[in-house]
């Protein structure tokens, strides 16, 4: 973990109690989104969206296509500037920060469409993330590829996702499932304070999805996860809390079990045959 000045201190899971109900989440929240609004011309993509992500939880954001999920993610990560509202991360207002600064503060994101550096090797992809976290990317001398302070943590991350033996392959040669794993290794390498995982199961088969679900379940010990996901089985297996985004607004938010029973949600989104 990093304190407010940006330095890391060791992570102590016990220090943060899990908050399943969300009633006292605000005091434990690492990410707070308040009254966020985004318009594209006359089209309102997000209107007064408020929710938070508590320490040590998985908070799932679900919603039908076109509900404004991607726009919301892009505003949180800083790729898109919001029109109104505030985003607080680790207690400070990050609304004015760019994407790189937010990443350095400890907000790691994975991409919906796998976004790796295709010409780089598997190892180089992870090393880049280590480089981004540890800095020193203005050092113009010294070989990066033999730098143990980059190499060793990168290999460790690859081992955690089971890609260590594929390290010298170009990222473009990986299978779809392996690319997903590499995405996670890159996110791990950032040692983030919070993960934003944008549809991490997209395009995975049933078996891969099961594997990844287990993996994410363990991952929450490292950092809380804001999970954007389509697969309802995954969401209800993993999430502590679920928020439902429809038409750019959050229509329901609460513990997973409650959301599953919520009539509004079932009518608007899940359909009556679900759950």
């Amino acid at each position: 973990m990093r304190d407010a000045t940006g330095y890391r201190k060791s992570f102590t899971p016990d220090a943060a109690r899990r908050t399943n109900g969300g009633s006292d989440a605000a005091c434990n929240a690492i990410l707070e989104v308040d009254q966020l609004t985004k318009r594209f011309g006359a089209v309102v993509a997000n209107e007064c969206v408020s929710f938070d992500l508590a320490v040590d939880e998985i908070h799932a954001l679900i919603g039908p296509n076109g509900a404004g999920k991607s726009t919301l993610v892009r505003q949180i990560t800083g790729e898109l500037r919001h029109d109104a509202g505030t985003i607080r991360f680790r207690g400070r207002d990050i609304s004015h920060l760019g994407a790189a600064d937010r990443a350095r503060l400890g907000l790691a994101r994975s991409f919906q469409v796998s976004s790796l550096i295709a010409g780089f090797s598997v190892l180089q992809n992870v090393m880049l993330a280590i480089l981004g976290r540890t800095g020193g990317h203005y050092r113009v001398f010294g070989r990066a590829m033999t730098d143990r302070s980059l190499l060793e943590p990168a290999v460790a991350c690859l081992e955690r996702v089971g890609l260590a033996d594929r390290r010298s392959l170009p990222a473009s040669d990986l299978s779809h499932g392996e690319r997903r794993k590499l995405e996670i290794a890159v996110a791990l390498a950032l040692e983030p304070e919070a993960f934003v995982l944008d549809e991490p199961m997209a395009g995975m088969g049933p078996e891969g999805t099961r594997d990844m679900t287990d993996f994410f379940f363990g991952l929450r010990k490292a950092a809380p996860i804001l999970l954007i996901e389509h697969d309802m089985d995954v969401v209800f297996k993993l999430a502590d809390r679920v928020s439902v985004l429809v038409g750019g607004r959050i229509i329901a938010s609460g513990p997973a079990a409650e959301i599953r029973q919520d009539s509004k949600v079932r009518a608007a989104y899940l359909g009556d045959d679900t759950g």
């Binding site: 760019g98 790189a100 600064d101 991409f111 390498a189």
Partner: peptide, 9 residues
């Protein structure tokens, strides 16, 4: 996009 997302300006 990826490079930015790992915190490099």
């Amino acid at each position: 996009e990826r490079t930015t997302s790992v915190g490099i300006d």
